[in-house]
Amino acid sequence: CHSECLGNCSQPDDPTKCVACRNFYLDGRCVETCPPPYYHFQDWRCVNFSFCQDLHHKCKNSRRQGCHQYVIHNNKCIPECPSGYTMNSSNLLCTPCLGPCPKVCHLLEGEKTIDSVTSAQELRGCTVINGSLIINIRGGNNLAAELEANLGLIEEISGYLKIRRSYALVSLSFFRKLRLIRGETLEIGNYSFYALDNQNLRQLWDWSKHNLTITQGKLFFHYNPKLCLSEIHKMEEVSGTKGRQERNDIALKTNGDQASCENELLKFSYIRTSFDKILLRWEPYWPPDFRDLLGFMLFYKEAPYQNVTEFDGQDACGSNSWTVVDIDPPLRSNDPKSQNHPGWLMRGLKPWTQYAIFVKTLVTFSDERRTYGAKSDIIYVQTDATNPSVPLDPISVSNSSSQIILKWKPPSDPNGNITHYLVFWERQAEDSELFELDYCLKGLKLPSRTWSPPFESEDSQKHNQSEYEDSAGECCSCPKTDSQILKELEESSFRKTFEDYLHNVVFVPRKT
């Protein structure tokens, strides 16, 4: 048989008469490798580009789960590009990614509803959504962080984005990388972005840091009482949809009607710091009717980097990364020049730590249904340095008659930039024990000054392991946590139920 035959053949030295091919099969003959313009397919066939392209389009058009959109890589027609490569849609070739590779997620039936953290986790790592997304989240724990972890990498949506009755959302900033909504599939009414009845939605994105392009379709905003109209108009300008909307697409009466839409800028007039305090004062603000001013709200939190936005980490279910302080308005003076500047002394802060701070007014709604208010920009203030805590785990070892090696770990709280350490030492008198000992005694162990690591005695271990207080009263049991108490109650309830079950099964009433 021919060298490319495997198993047997019907005619000697003829690659077209093989029972099976050793390498690849091409047009009725066995070959060692697939010549151009053919590609290896499933490690035994040679196919042309049209064959591989037909497989790709067949799966793409069917949208069946589990099928493969075949691509070409290293002269092979394979189910998908290997790690580190992405497909070129024009020629199906796998090309190296520039940075992290995109991950295209194809949605069944063309859309997916995100109504819980669990459903959001199914899209973790996706960068391109081939379909439409509907966000409908009523509640949950730590929602802002969970949504950002699972949806934060999405850069492109081919269909539309719909935010509907998501009472738990305060902001859409968890879509931190969303840059493009194509609108290839539109919501009824030709809408590519749809926001309806979101009672706590206050911000779409921080438009000073976020760009969003909507290729096709219109915007729809109705019944978002805490979303200011200025935020919607800003989205029109940034996304390129200005002029597409009709009169009733953006409701003037049901958007922002319960919001404090600040239209003035508060400026800080005085800032002073110490290692654990920050004193702030800002310019006074009074609405047209000074009785509408209820006070100020001061927001602050630790910020290692200057990239904080107002609604980071917030949701309507209680999660809030900001510390909020309510401040009463100052006494009002008739003389504008003698107006008191409101302020606040922030206490209990960490030394040498940068804080993000902003302040906003708290006002009631005027009778004319106009909203007044003022808010400052987010500023960054760093507390002063102070003395560091003591170095940890000092170790001293003498390696000769004239040297001592000293080692330690950095302090747990540096409280500033540590530039150097101060080492103090003092000579001590020799131990009298060394002169009084009889060095001729056998088995004498000389006193040693070398360091030995501390260890816990058996008594201390027994005390720590004991669940009861000892007789001397030195140790006591740790208080039980809520989960331990709940577990004990469940076990007790189970024992009672099981005992009742045994009584009912074992003891049967005697027939009379």
Rank of each mutant, 00 (worst) to 15 (best):
S269D: 03
R347K: 13
E264F: 10
V238W: 03
Q354V: 09
I154Q: 00
G110K: 06
I327L: 04
D384Q: 02
G348L: 06
L153C: 11
T364S: 10
P288V: 11
E231Y: 01
L362Y: 12
R291M: 13
W205A: 02
K350R: 14
D312C: 03
N141V: 12
G313S: 10
G125Q: 14
N307H: 14
S173A: 10
N190I: 11
T254E: 03
W282D: 00
N255W: 04
R369V: 11
T118W: 05
K407L: 05
Q382S: 15
L229Y: 11
T353A: 05
E246T: 11
N141I: 06
S260M: 08
H233R: 05
A303L: 03
P391T: 03
R165L: 03
P288Q: 08
G373E: 08
L294Q: 03
Q382C: 06
P391R: 02
G256A: 07
Q306F: 03
P394L: 13
S116A: 04
I163H: 02
S400D: 14
K350C: 14
I378L: 13
A356N: 01
E148I: 10
I188D: 02
S376R: 00
Y194D: 10
N248L: 10
F268N: 00
T323W: 09
E155G: 10
N190G: 08
R347V: 11
C126W: 00
I404Q: 01
V170G: 15
R281K: 03
D326C: 03
N136R: 07
T185Q: 06
I214L: 08
N340M: 03
G295T: 04
Q314L: 14
V128C: 10
I357R: 00
L180C: 11
P391L: 04
F175P: 00
L293M: 11
W205K: 02
D115I: 02
P329E: 04
V324H: 05
L266V: 03
P330S: 07
N320P: 05
K209F: 12
L280I: 04
N387Y: 03
D206I: 04
F296P: 02
Q339T: 08
A168Y: 10
L201P: 00
L169K: 00
T254C: 07
S260W: 03
F290Q: 02
K267Y: 15
Q216T: 11
H341C: 15
T118Q: 01
D377W: 07
G140R: 08
C228P: 05
R369I: 14
A259P: 14
D312F: 10
W205F: 12
E246W: 01
E237W: 15
S333L: 04
A259Y: 04
L345G: 05
P394S: 11
G256W: 09
R124P: 01
Y305A: 14
V104M: 06
T371Y: 15
P287Q: 04
N190K: 15
L362Q: 04
R138K: 12
N190H: 12
N248K: 13
S398F: 03
G125T: 06
N200R: 06
T273E: 04
S260E: 08
N307F: 10
L123A: 05
G343C: 06
A316S: 11
T254N: 09
P287H: 11
V397S: 14
L172G: 02
V325A: 14
P336Y: 02
I163Y: 01
I232N: 01
L204T: 10
F174D: 01
W322K: 00
A251I: 07
N320Y: 12
Y355P: 00
R370K: 10
I181T: 01
N224V: 01
E246H: 11
S333F: 01
W286K: 09
S269P: 01
V170E: 10
E184L: 08
P304E: 10
P330Q: 10
S321D: 15
C126K: 01
D393M: 13
G295S: 05
I135N: 00
I137L: 14
L178E: 00
Q339R: 09
Q382E: 10
G295K: 14
E109T: 12
L107C: 14
N198E: 00
L252K: 11
I134L: 13
V238R: 09
I157G: 00
I271S: 11
S338F: 11
N150M: 07
W352Q: 15
A374E: 03
N320A: 08
A145E: 14
K218N: 02
S398I: 02
G139T: 03
A303N: 05
L349M: 05
R138S: 15
G348I: 01
D312G: 09
V390H: 15
H106Q: 12
D315T: 05
Y194A: 12
E184V: 06
R369L: 12
H210R: 14
I278P: 00
I278A: 05
P304M: 15
I395G: 06
K350L: 10
Y194K: 12
N211I: 13
S260I: 11
H106E: 11
F311T: 11
N150P: 06
V104G: 05
G131Q: 01
C105K: 01
N142T: 15
N255V: 03
W207N: 06
R247Y: 08
D367N: 05
V308N: 05
G313Q: 12
Y194H: 10
G139R: 13
Q314K: 04
G131L: 00
M297A: 04
R291D: 14
S208V: 07
D206H: 04
G110P: 04
E187S: 11
N263P: 13
P304L: 15
S338Q: 07
T323F: 05
T118S: 05
F175R: 00
E231Q: 02
L180M: 06
P351S: 07
D249Y: 14
N224M: 05
K234C: 10
G159V: 02
V128Y: 15
F221V: 09
R202L: 06
Y194W: 11
L204I: 09
I357S: 01
P288R: 14
I271Q: 14
E262A: 03
Q245L: 06
W344F: 04
P394F: 01
D206N: 09
R124I: 15
V128I: 13
N307L: 09
T273F: 06
P225E: 04
S116N: 13
D335K: 09
N211F: 04
S396I: 14
G343P: 01
S230W: 04
K267T: 11
K253T: 13
K103Y: 05
I271M: 08
E231V: 07
N150W: 13
C228G: 03
A259H: 15
L107H: 10
G189R: 04
R369T: 12
P304D: 08
S376N: 00
L147N: 02
G125A: 11
E264C: 04
G373V: 03
T213R: 09
N141R: 07
T127F: 13
T353I: 15
Q216E: 01
M346F: 06
F174K: 00
T118L: 03
P284C: 02
Q216L: 07
R369G: 04
Y194P: 01
I154P: 00
S116G: 15
H233T: 14
D377V: 09
D115K: 10
C317F: 15
N142D: 11
E368F: 13
I327A: 07
M346D: 00
L279Y: 15
V308R: 05
G159R: 04
N307W: 09
Y305S: 07
H222T: 04
T309M: 02
K267S: 11
K209T: 14
L108C: 03
S319D: 15
H233M: 01
H341V: 07
